[in-house]
Amino acid sequence: MSQPNEEKWLKQINAQLDNSTEQLDYPTQLKLKQARHRAINQNIRSNKLFRWLKWGLPTMATATVAAILTINALMAPNENQVPEPNLFQDLEILAMEEDMELIKQLEFYEWLENNAESELES
């Protein structure tokens, strides 16, 4: 149906329904009005529930995911962070009166330590 014909048809239907309700007795008209009000109120309540489900659940899911990601980021150690050198340990080594030849071979000890770590990992 085209738009003007559809509007005309709806007006005719409404007019017939209004005429038929006017011919009913008063108690029946009252029951009909009460049924209409119950239907309207029920529709309003169901719309509120639908609106909550439509917006509430996705919002809660997004907030939960954001909270989990934030907690995970805060709890995970930062692997890119460079450890601070222990200056007191270096001073202790320099203050020792032992053989300075061992201190000169510090690169060898670093290499040995790195190889030991890589062997433990594999």
Score class of each variant (00 low, 15 high):
Q12R: 13
S118P: 12
M100L: 07
E107C: 12
H37D: 15
I40A: 09
D99A: 02
L91T: 04
L10R: 08
N114S: 14
N86H: 00
W55M: 11
P4T: 00
E79Q: 10
E121R: 05
L102M: 02
E119T: 05
S2V: 05
S2R: 13
K54V: 10
R51D: 07
I71L: 06
E97W: 08
K104R: 06
M100Q: 07
E84K: 14
M100V: 13
R51N: 06
M96Q: 08
L17D: 01
Y109I: 01
L17I: 00
K11R: 10
N41F: 03
H37Y: 12
M75S: 09
M96R: 10
E110Y: 04
E101C: 00
Q105C: 04
Q12M: 13
E79C: 06
Q12H: 11
Y26M: 05
D25H: 01
L10M: 06
N115W: 14
N115D: 14
N47C: 09
T28M: 03
N78Y: 07
E113Y: 03
M100T: 11
W9G: 10
L91A: 12
E98G: 10
W111R: 13
S2K: 15
K48C: 14
N78I: 15
M1S: 15
Q34M: 10
L30Y: 02
L49N: 13
T64K: 05
W111L: 11
T21I: 09
H37M: 12
I103Q: 05
L30G: 02
A116V: 07
A73T: 03
R45V: 04
W55N: 08
P83W: 04
M60H: 07
N14L: 12
I93F: 02
N5P: 01
N47S: 15
N80V: 03
W52I: 09
I13P: 01
N19L: 13
P85M: 10
L74Y: 01
W111C: 08
Q23K: 14
L120N: 08
Q23G: 07
L32S: 01
K48L: 11
F108W: 09
Q23R: 14
L69M: 02
E98K: 06
E97S: 08
I93Y: 03
L57Q: 03
T21M: 12
P27K: 00
N47I: 12
T64Q: 11
I103F: 04
L57K: 00
A116T: 08
E110L: 08
Y109S: 02
S46C: 14
L112D: 05
L74C: 03
T21P: 01
Q29F: 00
